[in-house]
């Protein structure tokens, strides 16, 4: 099964400059492991401990995964995954 994953500019150092790569997995967690196998180092930029990093957004078919099970969110063939770093900051 193949799932297209859109990679943001800041993480393209891990994908040889590719904007989108294919990966597979029945859950987001498995998908990230599959990404890591081909693009070592990328997992650490997405996950901290056992959770998605606070300032990384991942969407499955346009849904923020935080609303659909986070790392346990289910995936199937043909789904589209988008990774976007949060745009955030402030004086705090």
């Amino acid at each position: 099964m193949a799932i297209e994953v859109r990679i943001p500019t800041i993480l393209r150092t891990y994908t040889g400059g590719e904007k989108a790569v294919n990966a597979d997995g029945a859950t987001l967690s498995a998908l990230i492991d599959s990404l890591e196998a081909n693009h070592p180092g990328i997992k650490d930029r997405l996950i901290e401990g056992a959770d998605l990093r606070r300032f990384v957004n991942i969407y499955i078919n346009d849904e923020d995964v935080r609303f659909i099970g986070s790392l346990e969110a289910a995936l199937s063939d043909g789904d589209q995954v988008v990774i976007l770093p949060a745009v955030a900051g402030g004086a705090r």
């Binding site: 957004n57 969407y59 346009d62 923020d64 935080r66 988008v82 976007l84 949060a86 745009v87 955030a88 900051g89 402030g90 004086a91 705090r92």
Partner: peptide
């Protein structure tokens, strides 16, 4: 975040923007 010391784009707005 609606905050005087922090900002963050809403995650859905962010996806639409990109």
């Amino acid at each position: 975040a609606g905050s005087p010391t922090f900002y963050e784009y809403d995650s859905t707005d962010l996806l639409h923007l990109y």
